[in-house]
Computed example of a mutant assay.
Amino acid sequence: MAKSSDPAICAAPLPIPVDLFLSKKHPDHVTSSSGDIIFRLSRQYLKSSSIDKIVLHDAAAAAAGPLISIHRVNKESWQGFKGDIGEQDSLFKVQRTLNKLRRTEFKVFLVGENSDESNASLEMKGFPFQRSCTIYKGNTIVAQTSLMHKLHQICVRRGRFRLTIFPGTVDPSLIVALIVIFFDGRI
């Protein structure tokens, strides 16, 4: 069981669902509904075309260090660290379990919560092309992405989409890091 001091667990649960927005036009920002920047993303391309490291920063604490650093282990797995990768304080491991043309699934193993590698702490399932991803903890939905639909609009653009984080015990910065992994840097 995770402790309340575990960075993947919020000190106080969110009382209502929170909507954050991600945009292809501004891939380095995660904003609130009012347009305020909540998180900043920085990407480091160390190989020819793939992202090797993604760092999530709190926009309010610009001088503070990174919240979460994501490192691609191989094509099918990632690892997340509290702070910078050099600190070696591992938060989670993510393994892609299904990668079909239209459907993708991941298992997320939070470090310290499960010592058994066969039981995932969280699962991500969805359709990247439709900007649809649902994160589950057991049978409970923790977060969900969706396109921005407008009335009387035939073609819905996939350039901007909503991330809804439901009330619970999972830290919003962890959810944002998992969504970045799900869309494989193609936000």
Rank of each mutant, 00 (worst) to 15 (best):
M1P: 10
M1N: 03
K3N: 09
S4G: 09
S4L: 10
S5T: 13
D6N: 15
P7N: 02
A8G: 13
I9M: 07
C10Q: 11
A11R: 09
A11C: 07
L14H: 15
L14E: 14
P15Q: 07
P17Q: 14
P17K: 14
D19G: 09
F21K: 05
L22A: 10
K24M: 04
K25S: 15
H26F: 06
H26R: 12
H26E: 06
V30Q: 00
T31G: 06
S32A: 15
S33M: 05
G35V: 05
G35H: 07
G35A: 08
F39L: 01
R40F: 02
R40E: 00
L41G: 01
S42G: 08
Y45Q: 12
K47E: 09
S49R: 13
I51H: 04
I51V: 13
K53E: 14
K53A: 09
I54N: 05
I54V: 15
H57F: 15
H57C: 05
D58S: 09
D58H: 09
A59I: 03
A60L: 06
A60V: 07
A62E: 15
A62Q: 11
A63Y: 05
A64C: 04
P66M: 00
L67I: 03
L67Y: 00
S69C: 01
S69E: 00
E76P: 00
W78L: 05
W78V: 01
G80S: 04
G80E: 01
K82D: 05
I85R: 07
I85N: 01
G86C: 03
E87G: 07
D89P: 02
D89K: 10
S90A: 10
L91C: 01
L91A: 00
F92V: 01
V94S: 10
V94T: 09
Q95K: 14
Q95N: 06
T97E: 00
T97N: 02
L98E: 04
K100I: 02
L101A: 15
R103M: 07
T104L: 05
E105W: 04
F106P: 00
V108P: 00
F109T: 02
L110K: 02
G112E: 01
G112Q: 04
E113K: 14
N114P: 11
D116M: 00
D116W: 01
S121D: 01
L122P: 06
E123W: 08
E123L: 09
M124W: 02
K125I: 14
K125Y: 08
K125S: 11
P128C: 12
P128I: 06
F129L: 09
F129T: 12
S132L: 14
T134C: 12
Y136Q: 03
T140D: 10
Q144T: 12
T145P: 08
S146R: 08
H149S: 12
H149W: 11
L151S: 14
L151M: 12
L151N: 10
L151Y: 15
L151H: 15
H152Q: 13
H152P: 03
C155H: 11
V156Y: 08
V156F: 14
R157C: 13
R157Y: 08
R160D: 12
R160A: 11
L163T: 01
T164S: 07
T164G: 03
I165H: 06
P167K: 06
G168M: 07
V170S: 09
S173I: 15
S173E: 14
S173F: 15
I175D: 12
V176S: 02
V176H: 02
A177Q: 01
I181Y: 02
I181H: 04
F183Y: 04
D184N: 13
G185A: 02
G185H: 02
